[in-house]
Amino acid sequence: MNDNLSALAVTIKAWGRELGFADVRITDVDLAHAEPGLKAWLDAGHHGEMDYMAAHGMKRARPAELVPGTVRVITARMDYLPRDAGDEWRARELKRIQDPSAAVISVYARGRDYHKVLRARLQQLAERIRNEVGDFGYRVFTDSAPVLEEELAGKSGLGWRGKHTLLLTREAGSMFFLGELFTDLPLPVDEPVTAHCGQCRACIDVCPTQAIVGPYRLDARRCISYLTIELKGSIPVELRPLIGNRVYGCDDCQLICPWNKFAQRAVIPDFDARNGLDSASLVELFAWSEDEFNRKLEGSPIRRIGHERWLRNLAVGLGNAAHGAPDSEAIVAALGARADHESALVREHVAWALAQHHKQ
């Protein structure tokens, strides 16, 4: 039976590559080493309004409690850098951040919703396993439910956790998605890899809001990805100037990471940029009606925040554009058109943005 399971593990990894995953590994479910850190992070309130993080408590570190019968986790990574990203993609992204009129959206969010892509392909992987071994217990996850993805991925040997808390690999940096298949099959496990961050702290130093409060410690309440995606209400006034022109997410800690010179292009078209989200201006996106927002971003991860928060984020960027944008009149006109928006949240951020321009 052990020989059969070893052969099955090899086959599963080959199937994973056929399905577009760059790497597939296997680990057991013992994450006891991660529990103290998780508890300290929650106790410090670093999860902010992400109540679901605290609601499940230590279950995040106990896969067998989440899915009874689980003895192994098959972890997988899928590269998401767009297929047409040139060799100078990092320089291009950094240049856009310096353009106050540009709307900067995280690279991962410019194409199709990764949740749907990875979940569908992990489901296909599970079906192939079922065809091989018959019925077996499993459940698929992709950035969903209380799963400590980076810890499982790190333990399985997919990579190591960087100081920015994201997973890193020598072969592909960090520009990839993670997915998991919890299973009751007692497959042989893979060994972890060693960490290779050394003394580097580039990600800590570059963070615009200093959300990385120490190596491997992120205060989500200050993180631009949290502020523009997870936070439902008003963005703290003191943090607004630090957000710059970042509308949805933030890639700074990844762009500065030396390992991302090895980032790999996606092998599927799903993550190619849509609707010009790699080159749009703040004014252009701010003009989208709610219908346009919903239609153009159908199948996009961005749609989850809704049009109201989309306008909130763009208003902050437009306010920050008071410092250096050449088209200030067009920006003020765009903001003025939303000054009486039905949403109090939008009105508040538009008023703040207009105030930045009136200071100039």
Results as ranks from 00 to 15, higher is better:
V346S: 00
G306T: 03
S6L: 13
V283R: 13
G69A: 00
G69W: 08
V193D: 08
G244I: 04
S6G: 12
L152C: 02
E284N: 06
R265A: 05
I302P: 08
L42R: 15
R119N: 10
H56F: 15
R92A: 14
L178A: 01
D87H: 05
G111L: 03
L345E: 02
P236E: 08
A211Q: 10
D291V: 09
G20V: 03
W288D: 12
M53C: 14
D113S: 04
N320Q: 08
H46F: 15
P236S: 04
D51S: 15
L277T: 05
P192L: 03
Y216P: 04
T183V: 14
I302E: 09
D327L: 08
A273V: 02
G157H: 08
A55G: 15
D251I: 01
R309K: 13
A315F: 12
G57Q: 03
C250W: 00
I224P: 02
Y216H: 13
V24L: 04
P326N: 03
A273D: 02
W259A: 09
W160V: 07
C257Q: 05
T165W: 09
A337L: 11
T11Y: 01
I302L: 15
A202I: 02
L166V: 15
M1S: 14
K95F: 09
C197W: 03
N275Y: 02
E292W: 06
R110V: 03
A85R: 12
E49H: 08
A40R: 15
R121A: 07
E284G: 00
R72L: 01
A315P: 14
R221I: 02
N4C: 14
V67R: 03
V332S: 15
E292C: 01
I204K: 07
G319S: 10
D28I: 07
F21V: 11
R295M: 02
R92V: 13
L242Q: 12
I12W: 01
R221D: 11
A195Y: 04
L277A: 01
Q199P: 06
E18D: 15
C207D: 06
P146M: 12
I305V: 12
D327K: 06
A14N: 12
E132H: 13
K232G: 12
H307M: 13
E65L: 05
S289D: 06
R72D: 01
G137L: 10
A44S: 14
R77Q: 14
S289L: 13
D291E: 11
E238Q: 11
L282G: 00
L255D: 03
R265F: 02
S174K: 11
R170W: 01
L345T: 12
M78A: 07
N320V: 07
A40P: 03
Y52R: 06
I268N: 11
K232A: 12
I302K: 08
E348A: 08
N294W: 00
G306K: 12
R112W: 14
R240G: 13
V283G: 02
F286W: 05
I212Y: 05
L181W: 04
P208W: 09
L277F: 03
R119S: 09
K95Q: 10
